[in-house]
Design a protein around this nucleic acid. Structure first.
Lengths: 385, 385
DNA sequence: CTGTTAGCGCATTCAG
DNA sequence: CTGAATGCGCTAACAG
């Protein structure tokens, strides 16, 4: 673990500077010299010392990707799309300029998020991509926003993917030391401002509920995610907006028909049971996402209810398994992979920032077999006890 | 992005060395001084420069976790277990000594694996954890083994989790420059040798097939993973061993009853269809893992076959969704989380290496509702056209 | 307990 | 096109 640039230089009979130049590739070097250097590198099995190079160049090739749950395909798809973007920059292997995209699992906790941001800032990461909804917390949210702006100001590219744009600095609590740089032309999307790829959760949820209403459903249960998540709030808002627009009276029951839980299968299962207890007359149940919807299906089936004959079920995200669940799941399609690719390109500065720094991607209704008109009587056949 | 140790030192009225010492915490510093330094750090919003510190200390706090597919819960569970181990080392936040566990998605490709290993070596990672089966490739495998040994020799802790131990150096092709250090006491498990947590895939698969045989099945289809993966090979071997031990004649049909595919749902789906075409008389179908098994179920159902009445199905791994699939999936339980935790501890040097450097964890048969005795007639009721 | 002194390995000037 | 010199920010001996 000791072969350095100098060793290579000695072996190739050139100076360290020259070796550095051929390795960086961003400077003219004579063909013969280059070959000799490369050969020496091979023979000595030399591997650049990242920290040293980062220190000297004042920049590292680390790109952090923060996800809530690494075991959730929603994040897996986005993260691998971001990573794939790192390697498609011309060469394949670990060439010069090759970024190392690393994913960090925050467990959806703002503290963890802050911890990872600090760790990444410490590494002087070239970019940071935050994926998934933000947690709204009176104390943490401003802290995270502050740290993100600081990272951006320090040259780290910050990209938000699937979470709402950062609120305008506004009235900073106290730490407003510097006189908030005179807002430069925001339309241009400064490279040192956090960039955002937002999902149209509100619109998607709204279209999904409209679909159910059009089918004839009037008593629609909703197993939502954690209350403090922006994703949860947006989807719920879209749902209620659709309800309201169809008929204001439908909102009266909304709270009773909503239960909150995590974005996982078991909360779908538990939530559906709770809903059935509160309102046995539901004819449809929406899940916070596809995974939750699967849990809902499991619970309903165990209660002897058929899908969609007795109860319609729908999810959100359109993860791969949703298409071939039984029955195929009605859901809202989010272009996860595409969004991840774009986030990666933005993080690398390979794509022009969207106007205003924010791009919103569409969430498209994908109607499949798990939703159908409610039973004539409105009461399920083999209902629970 | 310019506040340095010196700035903090100046502000606190001490020397840079002292600041470094309070920040590292591994050296006695007077209480008053410490407080003043910490206050200066706060006020200046100082964040350590990782690269500089790594360079000076000749060690970084990066820990790489390589996975085949980040969107697959199998890897997600292991990876998050490893990560959780990084933070549980006393403090929570980004304190000194806090390691940054980052996961890298190789897509199961040896080239990618090699690329990430180089990138990690470049960063002088403190440890590297490789998860999941290895790909057996005449050219890449030795290359990877070589690089892993080199990493280990260079002080990076290398841990293999869910893949077989590295083969003994043996007859290195050509790059055997150094005279292979005289094998030190292997029983002690040198810190600079790759450590392994292997899964008993062979034994698990064998017990699973024995379960099916005990139930009365004789024509068992097998939708295996990619042929060149060690995991695939081991599970298949276990399966065939069970077949052979029950009655050598059963092996005659083994090839016809085996199809290969990826470790995903669609290959389970396609594989089941192919199997039905080749051998409509199958009474049971095994999947390479739980995800594949789910695909198998989907295909069988579409063909009008009931599970387990017409055909029994079983998976491997016991991922969370398997327990509440419908019907609940018979599978082989692998202690993924536990293995990840252990890998993390080994990577951090917090746990003594297992004797010989290799620990094998048990794979336990978990019989549930998706397997049952075959139909009396042996021929399914509503078989495909 | 604390300050001083040297590098860590590399990327850049700046001269040739 | 190439070499010599300088410093990135920090840690690790050494002295006090």
């Amino acid at each position: 673990m000791a072969v350095t640039l100098a060793d290579v230089a000695a072996r190739a009979g050139v100076s360290a500077a020259t070796v550095s130049r051929v390795l960086s590739g961003n400077y003219p070097v004579a063909g013969g010299t280059r070959t000799r250097v490369l050969r020496a590198v091979e023979e000595l099995e030399y591997v650049v010392n990242g920290p040293a190079s980062a220190l000297a160049a004042a920049s590292s090739d680390l790109v952090g990707v923060l996800v809530h749950d690494i075991a959730d395909p929603f994040f897996g798809i986005i993260a691998s799309a971001v990573q794939s973007e790192m390697e498609s920059g011309g060469e394949r292997g670990p060439g010069p300029g090759r970024k190392l995209a690393v994913v960090c699992n925050t467990g959806g906790s703002p503290e963890q998020e802050l911890t990872y941001l600090t760790l990444l800032q410490r590494q002087r990461a070239a970019a940071v991509v935050l994926t998934g909804g933000a947690v709204e917390h009176p104390e943490h949210s401003p802290a995270i926003a502050l740290r993100l702006r600081r990272l951006a100001a320090g040259g780290t590219r910050v990209v938000l993917c699937g979470r709402p744009p950062l609120p305008e600095p506004g009235t900073a609590p106290e730490t407003a030391a510097r006189p908030a740089a005179p807002a430069r032309n925001r339309a241009g999307g400064d490279a040192d401002e956090p960039l955002t790829i937002a999902f149209d959760n509100r619109g998607g949820a709204r279209r999904l509920t409209e679909h159910l209403l059009a089918l004839g459903h009037r008593t629609i249960g909703y197993v939502a995610g954690p209350a403090e998540r922006t994703t949860t709030r947006d989807r719920l808002e879209g749902h209620r907006r659709a309800l309201h627009e169809h008929s204001p009276g439908l909102l009266a029951d909304a709270d009773r028909l909503t239960v909150h839980g995590a974005y996982d299968r078991s909360s779908g299962y538990d939530g559906a049971l709770e809903l059935l207890r509160r309102a046995p007359e539901v004819t449809a149940v929406l899940g916070a996402n596809d995974t939750v919807a699967l849990g809902i299906c499991a619970a309903l089936r165990e209660q002897g209810l058929r899908i969609p004959e007795d109860v319609s079920v729908a999810g959100f995200d359109d993860l791969p398994f949703s298409a071939d669940a039984a029955p195929a799941m009605t859901t809202v399609r989010l272009p996860l992979h595409q969004a991840g690719v774009r986030a990666g390109r933005l993080a690398l500065g390979r794509e022009a920032p969207p106007p205003g720094g924010v791009a919103t991607v569409r969430a498209e209704l994908t109607a499949r077999a798990s939703t159908a008109p409610p039973r004539a009587g409105g009461t399920p056949a083999g209902g629970p006890g």
